[in-house]
Amino acid sequence: IVLAENMRNSSIKKSYKPGIALGIHNIGTAHYGKGNYSEALKYWEESLKIKEEIGDKSGVSKSLNNIGIINAVQGNYLTAIEMYQKSIKIKEEIGAIELIPATLNAIGGIYRNQADYTSALNYFQRSLKISEDYNNEIEVITALNSIGLIYSDIGDQASAMTYYQRGLKIAEEIEYSWWIPTIIGNIGLVNERQGNYEDALNNYNKSLEISEDKSDYRGINLMLTNIGGIYKLQGKYNKALEYFQKSLVINEKNRDTRKLVVTLSNIGNLYLRQGNYIKAIAYCTRTLNLSKKMGYLSRKKTIVNAFILLIKNLAMGIKP
């Protein structure tokens, strides 16, 4: 943040608007990385206004895209899609077609979150076609993985596995290590959904090992959460709690607010299943308060539902 602020302040002294816009944009990016989404949105919107004033279409497209990301995270899906569509339109106007697939994937992700799988698949397939036309292997991998997610969601695990394997093959061929653990983890999800828990655990642990080698805390956190989820499904609550607690430590250390909400929710719900109401209330309260603070609407609804279940159990006299 300090470096970005210095860039902005230096550009202000020189009355250099492109530098001012970039500095403000970077301040927003720094806040986004820390999970301060409201602050990030404020700076990105400020940067957008300057870029529009100076006619920086490429910069405007980027800002619109980022504003779309924030709104998607906060559950403002209609606004997010509107921002993404505006960004795509500008990309088409300036001939930056190769940048469109990433935004198409983002829109597809929103439709997937809304369980509109037909629309999601349409956007992912559009992204795949453009990426293949431009020989953009990284975006091809992204689209293949996304299509795999859709097929997995609708229960077609065989098709999901086909797309994951295609994506994994390309990732291994170009040695793009970022996607390899992610796809292996998603293959684990296919196995999990088919009830093959041991295979799923093997996939998750392999993905975890690769993520640890890369010091990728996000990948580590995701696999810890997935492994904990498997143990939760198996009724091994103490083992599940062990992995969720590891995830909690990572998220608190890295101040990843969004992931922290998810982890607190997982722990709270686990204590709820165990009938440990005191700890369940403590973790669910932390989750709800943090969700309100960051505007994470979908998670807030989950916690409210957990509280409702908790109250019902207490009302029925169910005790630990």
Rank of each mutant, 00 (worst) to 15 (best):
I183E: 03
N221Y: 10
Q245Y: 00
R286V: 07
G219K: 04
N276Q: 12
N203M: 09
N251C: 15
Y217I: 13
Y271V: 15
Y237Q: 07
S247K: 02
T225E: 05
T285C: 08
Y217C: 03
K259Y: 08
L233C: 07
N186C: 02
I220M: 14
L264M: 08
E209N: 11
Q234T: 06
F244V: 01
Y271F: 15
C284I: 10
L189V: 14
N205P: 01
L201A: 04
I281V: 15
T182M: 12
Q194H: 02
Y243D: 02
M294I: 15
N276A: 11
L248W: 02
L264E: 09
N276S: 12
L201I: 15
I180R: 04
K214D: 06
I187M: 03
T263C: 12
L248I: 04
N203Q: 11
N205Q: 15
Y197E: 00
L297S: 14
L248G: 04
I230G: 01
Y197H: 07
A240H: 03
Y296K: 06
R193H: 13
L201Y: 03
I281G: 08
Y217G: 05
M223P: 02
K239M: 10
T225P: 00
K239R: 06
Y243H: 10
Y283N: 13
N251I: 09
N186I: 01
N238W: 07
G229C: 09
E212D: 04
G268S: 09
L224S: 09
K206Y: 04
L264A: 08
Y217P: 01
I184R: 06
I227E: 08
N269D: 13
L189W: 02
L248T: 04
A282C: 08
K246R: 14
L290G: 09
Q245G: 00
G275K: 06
L272E: 09
Y283G: 12
E198M: 11
N202S: 15
N205F: 08
W178L: 14
Y197R: 01
Q234S: 02
N251E: 11
R255F: 11
L260S: 06
K232T: 08
R258N: 09
R273V: 12
Q234A: 04
K214V: 01
S265R: 12
W179D: 14
N196E: 14
Y277I: 08
Y231K: 00
N251L: 06
T263D: 12
I281T: 14
D256W: 04
Y243C: 06
L208M: 06
T257N: 11
N203G: 05
V190N: 14
Y197W: 06
G188D: 03
M294V: 15
E252D: 04
S211Y: 05
E198I: 14
N191D: 15
D216T: 08
I278F: 10
S207R: 01
